[in-house]
């Protein structure tokens, strides 16, 4: 949990503001979405942790990849992620985005999500319990405090590599690069 809050608020109020109002993108990417409704309703009440579902990616700064990612969903994930305003954090939920999980030999699921978008943290398990989301959120707080949740910065820095991998899987990206390709690395 978060200790010594008062000092942090004086030191860096903007960061603390981000930390305690994590808007989650409303996007059901996989079967892990089944544990999101219990998390945001009365029993577990994610609002205690400042986690609130946001209607559009432009109002959100936390993206939970809930479960396996098929090739078709990857396209939507990249587009959603690129629309989010900075600072933005991305957490892989469940075993499948880590290494494919149950679907390691499926021809239509990408096995490692972090080859295509930067991931700030993982929640392992199938299905992770709602408590696991809270543990992840509190970890994310610590990481934000220490400037370790730097996925969006890495995305900018190594954008050429990310874009190359995305193009290899999706064959054709119909949107222009988010950052200048020549820059970075």
């Amino acid at each position: 949990m978060d200790r010594g809050q008062m000092a942090k608020w004086f030191k860096d109020p903007v960061k603390m503001g981000h930390k305690y109002s994590l808007g989650v993108v409303y996007f059901a990417t996989g079967c892990g979405i089944i544990e999101i409704p219990p998390t945001i309703t009365t029993r577990w009440d994610a609002e205690r942790f400042g986690v609130v579902p946001a209607a559009t990616p432009r109002h959100a700064n936390l993206f939970l990849i809930t479960g396996y990612v098929s090739v078709k969903t990857l396209r939507a994930i990249i587009r959603t992620y690129e629309q989010m305003p900075e600072p933005k954090y991305l957490i892989g939920f469940g075993s499948c985005p880590i290494n494919g999980g149950m679907y390691w030999d499926s021809y239509n699921t990408i096995n490692s999500l972090d080859k295509y978008v930067p991931v700030d943290g993982w929640i392992a398990g199938c299905m992770p319990r709602p408590e696991a989301i809270f543990i992840a959120v509190t970890h994310l707080w610590t990481m934000i405090d220490k400037d370790m949740a730097d996925g969006y910065k890495r995305y900018k820095k190594y954008y050429r590599q990310y874009r190359r991998n995305q193009e290899r899987v999706l064959q054709h990206l119909e949107w222009p690069p988010l950052y200048p390709i020549g820059e970075g690395e």
């Binding site: 090739v71 396209r75 494919g100 021809y107 239509n108 590599q161 991998n165």
Partner: peptide, 30 residues
Amino acid sequence: LEREYPVPPFRKDFDSRNYVKEFFDSIPEI
């Protein structure tokens, strides 16, 4: 489907494990 596959994937001569090994695993890490 989103991608095009060399053989329609449900045919018996489409080896999914081999495809994963040759394609998805060949994509480099960042």
